[in-house]
Write a protein that binds this DNA or RNA. Sequence first.
DNA 1: CGCGCAATTGACTGCCCTCAAAAAGCGTGG
DNA 2: CCACGCTTTTTGAGGGCAGTCAATTGCGCG
Lengths: 254, 254
Amino acid sequence: MNQVMDHRAARTFIPVITRSEPQHHCASCSLHEICLPMGMNLPDMNRLDKIIGRRRRVARGSYLYRIDDPFENLYAVRFGHFKTRQFSAEGDEQVTGFEMAGELLGWDAIGTDRHQCEAIALEDSEVCDIPFHSLEGLFGEMPKLLHHFHRLMSREITGKQSVMLLLGNMQAEQKMAAFLANLSSRYAARGYSSTHFQLRMSREDMGNFLGLTIESISRLLSKFKKMGLLHVDGRELQILDLPAMRKLAAGADQ
Amino acid sequence: MNQVMDHRAARTFIPVITRSEPQHHCASCSLHEICLPMGMNLPDMNRLDKIIGRRRRVARGSYLYRIDDPFENLYAVRFGHFKTRQFSAEGDEQVTGFEMAGELLGWDAIGTDRHQCEAIALEDSEVCDIPFHSLEGLFGEMPKLLHHFHRLMSREITGKQSVMLLLGNMQAEQKMAAFLANLSSRYAARGYSSTHFQLRMSREDMGNFLGLTIESISRLLSKFKKMGLLHVDGRELQILDLPAMRKLAAGADQ
DNA sequence: CGCGCAATTGACTGCCCTCAAAAAGCGTGG
DNA sequence: CCACGCTTTTTGAGGGCAGTCAATTGCGCG
C-alpha cells in the first residue's frame, strides 16, 4: 500500500517532463533482451545507441504525447507504466493498452505523422526517445534490426486482435480473468512475480479497457475474492490460483 | 440480385486455388494508388514488380492462408473480398476484419513467422503474392518504399484500435451504423458508390465482427429500414440517408 | 474533522442474448 | 416445373447479464 500512497501523493497533473542525459547504453540496459535491441550484437547495439535520444522522465499523470502531436519519436519504456487511449468523434474514451518496461509506444503515429492516441504515465516513469527518422536511416544498413522492428510491429497488431476477441466474444468474468492472466505473464516475462503485483491503473481504466463499468470491475474482483482466486487490497493484487484464473480466461465457466 | 445468386451458385467449399502467370505490372494495375506501390515512380515500381510473385485466384469460400501456416507472403487484394478471423483457446471465433481491393493481408504473421489468423475469400477473388523476404531485401535500397510500408502497417494498428473503440464503447445500433459508414467510405475511396453496394459477408460474419448475434443484426437492419435510413434486400444495400447514418455512427442517439 | 475522490455494494432497469418458430432463398431431384 | 430439403434470415417472446442510479465506505489531505 505504500506505493499506492506515493502515487496519490504525486497526483499533481502538471505535465512535468524533465530530461536527463546520463550515459545511456542499450548494452547496459537490463531490458535489452525484450526491447528493440533484442538479439543484437555489441557493435550493432552501439550504432543503435548513437541515434537514440535522451532518456526522458515522465511524471505520474502527465502526457508522454498527446493526440495530434507531430510524430517524432517512438518511445521505449525503461521503467514505469503507461496507458494509451483514444477518443471517438463524440468524445468517448477508449483505453487501447497498458504499456510496461521494455515495450514500445507510438506505433499509431507512423501512418499519419501525427499521434492518434495519447500516452499517459500511470506512475513516475522513464522512456528512451527513438527518433523514428534516424531509425529508418539505420534500417538500410542493419537488416536484422529492420526485421526485428517488423516483428515487434506485427505483434502489436496481433495483440490488438486478441483484444478484439476479448471485447467481442467474452463476457465480463472471462474478460477480467484474461486481463489479469495477461498482466501476470507479462510480469513473469520481466522476472517479476506472476502472482503478486500491483495494479498500476485505476478501476476506471480497467473498466474502460475491458468494455465494462467500474461497478462491474469492483463486483468481479469481489467475486474472484469469494471464489478464492485472489486477494485484492486497493491496487495490491495476489493471484491465489493462477491455473484456475487461466482456465477462466480460456473460457471455462465458473 | 444477380451477383448474389452467382455467389450462391459458387458455394462449393472446395479449396480450389489456381495460379496464373500473366503479364502483371503494378504500373498498369488500377489499384496502384491505394496499394503498396502508392506514390512510387515508374523505375521503382518496376523493381517492385520483379519481386512480386504470381497472381493467385482464390475461389469463394476457400482459404488464402490458414492459422499456423508458415509465413511466406503478404498478399495484396486485386479484386474480391476476404474475411480474416482468429480463434480463442476454446475455439470461439472472432472475425478480425474484412479486406477489399488494394488492401494488404498477412501482417499478423510477421511477428512469429506463422499466420495467427486465417483469410477466407468471400467471393471469387485474386491477390498478388508479395514474398516478404524479397520485400525486406528491397527496403535497403528503397527507403521510400520502406517508409510507405511502415505507414500501411501503422494504419493497420490504428484501424484495429478503432475497432476496439467500437467493440468496447458502442452499443448495437451505433456499431452497425459505424460498420456501414466504414464500408461506405472504403467503397467511395475506390471509386464505387458510397450509398449502394453489396454486403459480401453473411449476417453471421457481420455479427461476429461487431460482437452481436445474427438476430440483432437482422433486427437492426429492419430498424434502419423503418427509420428510412436504408433499403436492404438480402445482401443488396442502399443507404438512403448517409449523413444520418454517419451521425448515428458518431454517437448521435436515434 | 470535513472534504474530495476512488471503490464497494445494493436495487432496479434495460439492452441484447437465448430459444423458438416462421419465412425466404437456393439447389436438387422427381 | 414444382416439390422438397437445407440454409439463411426474419420476427417474436422471455430471460439474464451487465449497466444505471444511488447510497455507503475507506483513504488521503487540507
